[in-house]
Every structure is written in structure tokens, then in C-alpha cells.
Design a protein around this nucleic acid. Structure first.
Length: 428
RNA sequence: GUGACCGUAGCUCAGGUGGUUAGAGCGCCAGGUUGUGGCCCUGGAGGUCGGGGGUUCAAGUCCCCUCGGUCACCCCA
């Protein structure tokens, strides 16, 4: 039989049975559990925002003209409203912060999120049209401690999952003026070489000069190495902030490499910028990225300045990296108890038993009564059931079920009434 | 948006230069004597070879188009 519909390009189903971790629900649950646990240790509380946001929220943050708005987002109009499927979470979190006046709450706001985001890009390894991000935002914090804490949180999550081979790169972007001055210097530096650049880089020189820094063309990389360094254009307060962040990272032995060419394309980013890369990910090897965005609140129209720092991380890339690292996944059984029926008389008995056992907190499933005992036991074995309860005509007649221990292979007659307590004590 | 490679059973894949009823392993189902799983043995179901068109006496195999997948470029919030 041929399937008629498929999931949309760049989207995929997460199933209980998939061989690949990225597409297996059990793997997701495990990773999500570790993330939530770590968020709690850092006292980050969960925020859930709608998948739909006003287009202008995203567009204003990003700048109207860029490819991001025109090509990379799922946007549509309905009635008079322009909608967008959120492409990331930082702007929505800031929107919620401003909308609900969270600055009125005591101290900084420490929020984490986990959920689907959408970008209309061509899919490739580690890049999907519906993908999932988790991350944290500390809003209302100017302290370099917050920057370091955010970095630490991301790394602790990866560590707790047993992921190895991650590398941390950091840089400082300075304030808005620093970047304006730097971009001028960069353009001045590249201008004499313009004819030699690839057409892509020539366009970047016009539209987004900072992006020349991460060109993949070998000849251009040599030019980039000699290019002016952002750090030399950064204001003194930002430098002091940067030094403070590094000092804190040193205190807890977080190793990093300083990358003077690590930049952000959007204007609302300030000061600290960092990226964590993973192994075995292909071209899209950034596991997480983050930093400070002290100017975001104003760039989305608020009169209020909200200093903030955070990171965003890709779930799919994390799963991919864990898979590439050969991490074994904890394999859980599907059920505690498999109720095996033989013949119609067993039907009401099993239904009642299942009800009682579930009330006691056990995980229970009933086998199909019309199939052979052998087939049902085989199924029970595959589900990793720890015991089977067998009820056929004999058991119905005597009021006693056969309880079978699947690991030992032993079995015992137990009256229906006593069965819930018997199994409960047996399985504990 | 651009490019490369790929598309044969549920899954992973075989099917030299086109030639008769399309294969394997795993998985699934059923048996191997009465109501007992794992190992082993036997059998079975399951495919319009992604779809459409063309070349040919003959196409899974060649050509074109199309739709998917994968990876890379572009972009990267």
C-alpha cells in the first residue's frame, strides 16, 4: 500500500519506533528531562509563548530589507493581520516581558523555553523547516555574572547528557557605536580587494559587511585573517564587561577560545557573543549561540531599555550530536504487566483487572484474546513486560489468574482479588 | 534561490554493458501436537521497482519531465 500523504518538506514525525535518535520520541523525552532538571538547578522558570507572532515583531528586530524577512520566514496575512510562525524565541520572550510588565517583579527575570520554531529554508543536516529550540533569557540583568551564567547553563546541559567534543567561542561586540566604527574600518580594509572577492562577498560588502568574516572561500579567509579586529574598536566599558565575563569563566574552569571574528548580523546585539559547536554535525555545527542583546527592547519599539542576555540551542542538533557521539540511550520497557487472555470469557475479567492495576499505578496492556498464547507471550516479551497475567477458561472457572514472571520464567496462581496487591509488591 | 548525489518490500540494501514469473537480511504473521516468550527450524503475507512521458520487439536498468530524500552553497535571528 502506498502512502498518499507525506509530512511537508523539512518536517518530520517523531515516533516511538524510529532507529534514529532525532526521530525517536523516547530520545526526546530523555533529553527534555535532563534540560528541565538543569533549568531548575539554575532557577530558570518556563515561559511558553504562542507559535504565531505578529510579523512586525520579528521584522522590526531583524531589519526589513534582509533576506530573513523576505525569504526565510513563514509569514501570511489573514484579514488585516500579518502573522509569522516564530523563527526564534528571543523576540517573543522579550515581547511577553514587555507586554506583562515583568520588570515589576522583583529582581531579574530568569526564563527558559523549549518548543518548535519555523524557518522556510532548504533543509540540510541539522536544519529543518520546523525545528525545536530550547534556551534561556535573563532579562533586566547588566551584571557580567549573568552572561557567564548563561554560558555555564548551556555547557552544564551538554555535560549532563554526556556530550563530548563541544567547543566554546566567545567575543565581545561592544556597543552600537563600536560596531558602526568597526564596519567602517572593515569596508575600508576590503575596498581595495573588492574586485578579487567572490560575487557573494561583494554583495555582503554592500549589505552586511560583517558576514564576510565567515566566508568559506579559502582565499578570502586569508584576507579575513589580516582584517581589522572588532575588539580594537570596542568601547572601554564593554571591554571591562568582557574581561569580567572571562574571569568568571576562568573561575569555574570553563575553557573557551576567543574569536575576534565572531559577530552577529543584527544591530540589537551588544557586548558578549558566544557560540558552542558540536562534533559530527556537518556544515551546521553550531549547537547553541547566544549573548547580550541590550538593544532589543528598543528595537521592537519599547521606550524602556531592558538589558538582557541568553542562549538559544537546537534540539535536533543536540540529538544529532549525541547520536554521532555514540551515546547509549536508557532503554525503558513499555509496560509493567501484560494481560494475556485466552477466549471470550476472559474479556470482562481482564478489563476489570487492567482498570484496578492502573489505579494502583502500574502500566498495563491487554493482549488480543483471539491470538495464540505463544503470540501474546512473544509480544509481551518484546514490550519488555516484567510480568504476564494469564487468564483463560481455567482461570475464569477457578477465580485464580496465572501470574508469570518474565525474567525468571516462574509462575503462580493468584486469586483475582489479590492480584493487584500481589503484582504491586512483586514489581517493587 | 543554486548545485551534487540518491529514490527497488515496514527497515537496511542486492539486482555487470536493457532480455522471460523482482531478490536477500532484519522485521511482521503462522506453524514445529494439548494453554507458555527469548535461541533454532519451516512456511506465509507484503513491491503497479517515487510518479508521468519517451526510446525499444523488450526498461527496475537508457532519455526527458516531475515529485520526494540527502548533503552542500546561499542565508543564518
Amino acid at each position: 500500500m502506498k502512502a498518499t500523504f507525506r509530512s511537508i518538506e523539512g518536517t518530520y514525525d517523531i515516533l516511538p519506533t524510529s532507529r534514529r535518535a532525532v526521530r525517536r520520541s523516547e530520545a526526546w523525552q530523555h533529553v527534555e528531562g535532563v534540560i528541565r532538571d538543569m533549568m531548575q538547578r539554575f532557577a530558570f522558570q518556563e515561559i511558553r509563548t504562542p507559535v504565531l507572532e505578529p510579523l512586525s515583531l520579528i521584522a522590526r528586530g531583524v531589519g526589513e530589507a534582509s533576506d530573513i524577512v523576505t525569504k526565510e520566514m513563514f509569514a501570511f496575512i489573514r484579514g488585516r493581520t500579518h502573522y509569522v510562525l516564530r523563527p526564534e524565541m528571543t523576540a517573543p520572550v522579550m515581547r511577553a516581558y514587555l507586554q506583562h510588565h515583568l520588570e515589576q517583579h522583583p529582581g531579574e527575570q530568569r526564563l527558559f523555553y523549549m518548543g518548535p520554531c519555523f524557518r522556510a529554508e532548504r533543509p540540510q543536516k541539522g536544519r529543518y523547516r520546523q525545528f525545536h529550540q530550547f534556551g534561556v533569557e535573563i532579562l533586566g540583568a547588566i551584571d557580567p555574572r549573568a552572561d557567564a551564567e548563561v554560558i555555564s547553563c548551556a555547557l552544564e546541559i551538554y555535560g549532563a547528557l554526556g556530550l563530548t567534543g563541544t567547543t566554546l567561542r566567545i567575543n565581545t561586540l561592544g556597543d552600537a557605536d563600536s560596531r558602526v566604527r568597526y564596519i567602517e574600518a572593515l569596508c575600508a580594509y576590503f575596498a581595495p580587494y573588492e574586485a578579487k572577492l567572490t560575487s557573494a562577498s561583494q554583495q555582503r560588502l554592500q549589505k552586511n559587511p560583517l558576514r564576510i568574516l565567515d566566508t568559506k572561500v579559502q582565499a578570502e579567509r586569508a584576507l579575513v585573517r589580516e582584517a581589522p579586529r572588532l575588539i580594537d574598536y570596542v568601547d572601554s566599558e564593554s571591554r571591562a564587561h568582557y574581561e569580567a565575563v572571562k574571569a568568571l569563566l576562568d573561575e569555574v574552569n570553563i575553557s573557551y577560545t576567543e574569536d575576534p571574528h565572531l559577530v552577529r548580523g543584527l544591530d540589537y546585539y551588544t557586548r558578549t557573543a558566544f557560540e558552542i559547536e558540536g562534533a559530527g554535525l556537518g556544515a551546521q555545527n553550531a549547537l547553541a549561540g547566544g549573548g547580550r542583546y541590550d538593544l532589543l527592547s528598543q528595537s521592537i519599539g519599547s521606550s524602556r531599555s531592558v538589558p538582557a542576555v541568553g542562549f538559544a540551542a537546537g534540539m535536533e542538533r543536540l540529538l544529532l550530536a549525541l547520536e554521532a557521539g555514540g551515546q547509549p540511550w536508557p532503554a525503558a520497557g513499555v509496560v509493567d504487566t501484560y494481560l494475556l487472555g485466552l477466549g471470550e470469557a476472559a474479556a470482562p475479567v481482564l478489563f476489570v483487572l487492567a482498570h484496578q492495576l492502573r489505579r494502583k499505578g502500574l502500566s498495563v496492556i491487554q493482549g488480543p484474546r483471539w491470538r495464540s498464547m505463544k503470540a501474546q507471550l512473544r509480544t509481551a516479551h518484546r514490550l519488555k513486560a516484567r510480568c504476564c497475567v494469564i487468564v483463560g477458561d481455567n482461570e475464569v472457572a477457578t477465580g485464580q489468574a496465572t501470574a508469570k514472571d518474565m525474567a525468571q520464567g516462574t509462575q503462580q496462581l493468584v486469586s483475582f482479588d489479590a492480584l493487584p496487591d500481589y503484582l504491586l509488591s512483586y514489581l517493587r
